[in-house]
Amino acid sequence: MAEAKVDPMHQFTIEPLFGSESWALGATGINIAFTNSALWMLITTLVLFAFVMGGMKRELVPGRWQMMVETFTGFIDQMLEANIGKAGRKYVPYVFTLFMFILFANLLGLMPLGVIGVHPFTFTSHFTVTGVLAIMSFTIVLAVGFFKHGLHFFSLFLPHGTPWWMAPVIAPIEFISFMVRPFSLGLRLFVAMMAGHVLLEVLSSFVISGGNAGPLFAVGIGIPSMILMIGICALELLVAGIQAYVFALLTALYINDAENLH
């Protein structure tokens, strides 16, 4: 009987690949080891490239694949137009990249490749990654805001119709809520992905432990856990899409603040 030792956190461990643990960026000594995380970023990039390439036939009457890719670009385009307006058009490349990169990373991390011995790594379950993406979005918001409105951008912290005597209270609150945005943006994705993967891992440990503990436990705990896992897998696929959507949508809303103030 196999020893059931399941560490739900082990799946998030980053390991350098191909003996790259001492790779450094030039003479700066900054470590850039090519890890399993980096490998899955590469795979995400390649899969996403292959997917979008299928939509580049540019036919007048699109096939299924082209239609699918056009649906995604149209989806992002409409989201930006609905939230920002005509000016939202120019952010389509960034928001599309953000949405698709996160979506494909989330989905690829859920692929049941373990059955063929390959363990997918969900790099969106690392706040180092989601944090960088969030800071990127936040930087764009700040750059657009100050470039378009100059110091007038600070009026964002004083909503229209605020009585003057409320300003000393409202402005700090608005400022804090504004500064919290990159953290909430990055943490939301990281927490959602990590929680889902931990939950799946814990449930799978129930299946294995239950199976090992005898027929009664196998039927009483193992099988219900397995059924629950299948359901949670479907839920996680949904969460993968929703979290990518939320990240892109919030980025669009924040850019809207910078683009149009309020």
Binding site: I32, A33, T45, P93, T97, V132, L133
Partner: peptide
């Protein structure tokens, strides 16, 4: 390493695809 490779691959994705 995380930040570097994310910037590399996200950058490639942004410029090539986006």
């Amino acid at each position: 390493s995380q930040v570097f490779w994310l910037l590399v691959f996200f950058g490639i994705t942004f410029f090539v695809i986006g």
